[in-house]
């Protein structure tokens, strides 16, 4: 894995990348910036994995103008242009899945395949996402993970002032686009029918942020979308069952190398 900084329309982005093969862009969940984990390592065996930190997260500078989820989608289309990548496999987890879905409704033709891991981003009838911004750490961990020990993968290296300020910057960047409406764009659900890229939904069976019933709302809107459930996972199967998640994602993306 290598790390570099690049500038995308004036925004300084921290980019991790590794492996070779077709390009696969991974969009991380909140709290996952800059964490190169076994899931990424395994994907990098078949793909060139590109893992940028969202603006304001994990070493990427905050950008004042980012005020709506579509700003982030455009930012990543700009990043693809900057890297001269015409078409990629796109994988997003949770908040990153929301951004990935926004990109897909704008520019499905840029995607060879789309993988959404427990995405948020749409309003699901009968479900209100629990308000993570109000939670202290123990409750947050219990809500996000099936096995709380798995949260150690995301534990900060220290709790010094600089680290606390960086964590605060990430929360602020997230709140900027996700505070209210909380974790969704009211316009997105209606637009999901525009997605033509082959789509896989990966979902933790014990997800308490967006339970499995949310998955059905996504599969109902995206033609041909396939659902893969993870019996040992909460909201983040790529962290809780990394080997299987990476295998499922690799196989799906490799099977759609030429796109639909």
């Amino acid at each position: 894995m290598t790390e570099r900084a690049l500038t995308v329309r004036g925004v300084s982005v921290r980019l991790l990348s590794g492996g070779d093969g077709p390009a696969l862009l991974f969009l991380h969940a909140a709290g996952g910036a800059g964490r190169w984990l076994p899931f990424h390592e395994q994907l990098a065996r078949r793909f060139t994995l590109l893992f940028p930190s969202h603006p304001g997260h994990g070493g990427s500078a905050a950008a004042d103008w980012i005020d709506h989820i579509s700003d982030l989608a455009f930012h990543y289309l700009d990043l693809l242009d900057e890297l001269r990548l015409e078409r990629v496999h796109l994988v997003g987890a949770s908040f990153g899945g929301w951004i990935a879905a926004e990109i897909a409704v704008m520019a499905s033709h840029r995607l060879k395949s789309l993988v959404l891991i427990d995405p948020v981003g749409i309003k699901v009838d009968g479900w209100i996402y629990p308000f993570l911004f109000a939670m202290e750490l123990p409750q947050l961990v219990a809500t996000v993970f099936h096995d709380p020990m798995n949260a150690l993968a995301l534990a900060p290296a220290d709790l010094g002032v600089d680290t606390l300020v960086e964590l605060s910057r990430e929360r602020a960047a997230l709140a900027r686009v996700a505070w209210n409406p909380y974790l969704y764009n009211p316009l997105l659900k209606r637009r999901l029918c525009r997605i033509t890229a082959p789509t896989l939904l990966c979902w933790g069976e014990h997800d308490r942020v967006a339970p499995l019933q949310c998955a059905r709302a996504w599969t109902a809107e995206i033609a041909g979308a396939r659902l893969e459930a993870f019996a040992g996972s909460g909201h983040v199967p790529h962290i809780e069952e990394p080997a299987r998640a990476a295998a499922v994602v690799s196989e799906f993306c490799a099977g759609h190398e030429e796109g639909r």
């Binding site: 911004f133 109000a134 202290e136 002032v161 300020v165 605060s168 602020a172 709140a175 900027r176």
Partner: peptide, 22 residues
């Protein structure tokens, strides 16, 4: 009140947050 209520995301600027933390 719980800590998140004291410090909602983005409510405090980074220089002010540093000042409070130190």
């Amino acid at each position: 009140m719980s800590l998140p209520f004291w410090q909602p995301p983005g409510y405090t600027t980074e220089p002010s947050l540093k000042r409070v933390l130190t």
